[in-house]
Write a protein that binds this DNA or RNA. Sequence first.
DNA 1: GCTGTTATTGAAAACGATTACATCGGGTCG
DNA 2: CGACCCGATGTAATCGTTTTCAATAACAGC
Lengths: 337, 337
Amino acid sequence: MSDSVKAIGIKDVAREAGVSVATVSRVLSNGPVSDALRARVEDAVRATGYRPNLSARRLRSQHSQTIGLIVSDIRNPFFTAVSRAVEDAAFQAGMRVILCNTDENPEREAMYLRLMQEERVTGLIFAPTRATLARLDRTDLDFPVVLIDRSAPAGRFDSVVLDNPQAAALLVDHLHGQGYRRIAGLFGNTSTTAVERHAGYQAALAAHGLHAEARFVPPTAEAAEAEIARWLAEARRSGAMPDAVMVSNSLLLMGVVKATRTLGLTIPGDLAVAGFDNEPWTELVGPGLTVIEQPVHEIGRAAMTLLFERLDDPERATRKVVLSGTCVARGSTGGVG
Amino acid sequence: MSDSVKAIGIKDVAREAGVSVATVSRVLSNGPVSDALRARVEDAVRATGYRPNLSARRLRSQHSQTIGLIVSDIRNPFFTAVSRAVEDAAFQAGMRVILCNTDENPEREAMYLRLMQEERVTGLIFAPTRATLARLDRTDLDFPVVLIDRSAPAGRFDSVVLDNPQAAALLVDHLHGQGYRRIAGLFGNTSTTAVERHAGYQAALAAHGLHAEARFVPPTAEAAEAEIARWLAEARRSGAMPDAVMVSNSLLLMGVVKATRTLGLTIPGDLAVAGFDNEPWTELVGPGLTVIEQPVHEIGRAAMTLLFERLDDPERATRKVVLSGTCVARGSTGGVG
DNA sequence: GCTGTTATTGAAAACGATTACATCGGGTCG
DNA sequence: CGACCCGATGTAATCGTTTTCAATAACAGC
């Protein structure tokens, strides 16, 4: 707590060890130094408790050794898992990660993009909203970007995404196989992900000769709960109750389950339910919830791989890695009758 | 993607605007500049697309404008909520947050503490494991630290914690009021939090004249599931089945619920269940899970307040803010019979 | 008209590290 | 033995800002 002493710098270490600052720097970065001096310097570092100043280091070396990771919702276990994978890969490569959370808010996205530039990040992994994705082409960033979860329509950026249409179709096929015929769909209205899942849902229903009924809501449990309650009330009046509902993410899934509780509906007796993301709790709710499981860790790893390859060769053609999900069938789609 | 042009710096802006770099700097930091020049500089900034280099800025100004936040598990909604509160408060104060995740691993804690020093953070908010907490007194950091969730035994650091004994007692009292008499307790074995909750649990049971039966496990759902299964099997053989079990965090809670499923026990018929942290899914599992709700947002805000006050006055006495939780009663403790 | 004061502005030092370049010894080879 | 080279080390330039300090201009007071 002695506030008066200045923080110790590389000069102090050099003096303590009786060498030049250059030698200290070389020891710190495993440069060519004789064993004798190296030992002296290491002792001095320990003795003084020296910690290099990262700002100075980054400024001079023009190397931030940092990659950015901008996700839309850190509470979503999908993103926590991905960020874990990214961080592990980054750590192995001796890099740090700056993790930012946008809440699907374009203003925050813009703010964090600016931050990334000011931090001079080496690269960025980004899950943008549709709004930002649209103008991202025209924004110029001076670092490579890999998109995750949300994909670019054109091809200026590398990206890694789930095969969303296929995954949605997987759910529809499963529901159809279990005997459900009126399959409602509830989708988020901010991400391209939801759009793709909706497309897969529609195509699969068409293939089975079924009619699609889809609605789009803000990606919150509350919105989903309210919408599904309204929807079912209407459906009951018109005598056209769906026998199953699939949703495009786990927040909506929670909303739907809540709604069935307040409406007094049983799962799957009155309504079958299926969704995305195999979160730990989905196994524990009701008879267990049928979900699509994403290869979350692989998605994170793939994003890092793409990023590093791009850093190696900035000129190569952009790539899009598409991974497929698997259907985890549980009691919530137990079958008709 | 024009890689050949050097990144533009403050010099380029100065040349573009026909002023000195000092003036540009002053405009950027709202220093005293005539309106005419200010306008010219702002135009130049826009024209060149200049972004200040944060490393250089931090190096020169000796002000990182950054606070560290080290949590033990970012997937734990308690910490996601806290970090949200911290980040909001930091943003309002014009600061950035470096968020780090230790997984309750002392090595990672040490690594991140080192990182905080090298980043020259202004202050740190930290939820340490017991192991690290013990040696934290002897470590010298050159920035103030506020502990959250886990409290310091001595008093070198400011801290903000839940009133853990009281919260645990709240649960025990509730269970007792519902008619339960054999109340088992399952606690994590890495945090001081669990220790305090255990103490409250024991005291409350004693007050009711009941016998405490507690066990400690690693803070994972798997460990809890295995332990509770073993425990119940033993208890059944010895004819001393508990009629209720309380656990010290939400991961353990999940493990216990899983175990009841595989063992075919009903909640609360065969076993009442209660735990900590009012996560969204606890409402949806079985008849709803009775939990202690923590004032998560207030905890984050209080930590930031403590930190800022400490920065204002490094000499003042350390404080410990204790907030109380509330009991959210649900079906999982529905009552005996 | 001279001086003191204040508000703008620019030149240059400083922040704490890395690194280009020079220096120095000692070994190898012709 | 001299030329050459190589590895270890030190000196000083450098990264892109902020900030100190001096300079200038404008203006008020006497």
